[in-house]
């Protein structure tokens, strides 16, 4: 009798947890059709974690640097841990999270988000944070980024957040119930289309150009963490024409870099040297680079990394070669698919 009771409790518990788990997986956004950026953070965990360079930041890293080029040209094994509108605090916690798995030689941090200090938005928070694996870093990232309307519990049980999607389910929600297709190339978001940069607006004058102390504090935490782990920190400003990058901000970042003996590369100022042509190398009028631009920039930046950070080529390492071989195939396939789509559209 007692055994029957215990069995009933076990069966009911398994049934309840099982159905809740399934429903949660079902209603969570899959980010496969559009806004694929929602998958970037999670894709990292499927990687072999032995990277020389980790890029951190928002769209200014995941749309402007191609790890494949860095590998092919310089033998640098890199990964981009970036997602849409990734806040500085989130970059810090993602770095913390990354260091649980590996210790790269170099961390490249995109500084755009430092002065921009965008207010957290729930949709972006979810794209960044849902993909993180549970750890203290994720807990802190959530606590630091949550908007007033958000609740921590919604992150613990995403079913509570996404429950209303139950009436909007598509075939994708069933297809990708237990897996996702790869959408990035080591965190790089490939776009082969092109839209020339025309009429890029000038930045409007600001009342105060001082970078928020709280933002600088997170930058400092990133630096400290890298120092503790013996990682070289490189600060970059990507060559995106917009959002506008003010000289006053640049001066403050430069000063910070000098103060802490960090390499700061303003790639916006070196766009010509990198060979970028904003008539052909951007897909959205100068906000982000397309594949052609990202490859040019990666070639240029790879040389800087090699020179300043003393990174040695790892070409020839069998396991890495094999992994990159596979990645190259997917890279070329994605490129060909996009080109075919553009051709079909024309």
């Amino acid at each position: 009798m007692k055994a029957k009771k215990i069995l009933s409790v076990v069966v009911v518990t398994v049934f309840v947890i099982g159905t809740l788990y399934l429903l949660q997986r079902l209603v969570m956004p899959k980010y496969m059709d559009d806004v694929v950026e929602g998958n970037f953070i999670a894709e990292y965990y499927n990687e072999e974690k032995d990277h020389d360079v980790i890029f951190l930041g928002d769209c200014e890293v995941y749309e402007n640097f191609s790890p494949l080029v860095l590998w092919e040209e310089y033998g640098i094994n890199s990964y981009i841990r970036g997602s849409a509108q990734q806040l500085v605090s989130q970059s810090y916690y993602i770095l913390e999270d990354t260091l649980r798995y590996e210790t790269p030689d170099v961390v490249v941090f995109s500084v755009l988000a430092v002065p921009y200090n965008e207010a957290p938005r729930e949709s972006y928070n979810r794209m960044t944070l849902d993909g993180m694996r549970w750890s203290l870093s994720k807990v802190n990232a959530i606590r630091d980024s949550m908007t007033e309307e958000e609740s921590f519990l919604d992150y613990v049980f995403p079913l509570l957040r996404y429950h209303s999607r139950i009436t909007e389910l598509t075939a994708d929600d069933f297809t990708y119930l237990f897996h996702r297709d790869l959408v990035s190339h080591n965190g790089y978001y490939m776009r082969v289309d092109s839209l020339p940069a025309e009429n890029v607006p000038e930045g409007r004058p600001l009342g105060d150009y001082t970078i928020d102390a709280a933002q600088m504090e997170y930058l400092d935490k990133i630096r400290t963490l890298c120092e503790e782990k013996g990682i070289q920190l490189v600060l970059v400003k990507a060559p995106s024409l917009y959002p506008y990058w003010y000289d006053e901000w640049d001066a403050q970042i430069t000063e910070y870099a000098e103060e802490h003996d960090l390499l700061y590369v303003n790639l916006l100022a070196q766009a010509d040297e990198a060979g970028l042509d904003f008539q052909t190398d951007t897909y959205d009028g100068g906000l982000h680079l397309n594949l052609s631009g990202a490859e040019k920039l990666s070639r240029y930046f790879g040389a800087i990394l090699q020179d300043h950070c003393g990174l040695e080529s790892r070409r020839g390492e069998e396991a890495l070669e094999a992994a990159w071989q596979e990645k190259t195939v997917w890279y070329e396939e994605d490129k060909a698919r996009q080109e075919a789509e553009i051709a079909a559209g024309e």
Partner: peptide, 14 residues
């Protein structure tokens, strides 16, 4: 319980 969880008008968006 599932009906309330899934079809309840609560959380962000409501």
């Amino acid at each position: 319980f599932l009906i309330v969880i899934l079809f309840g008008a609560y959380g962000i968006g409501y």
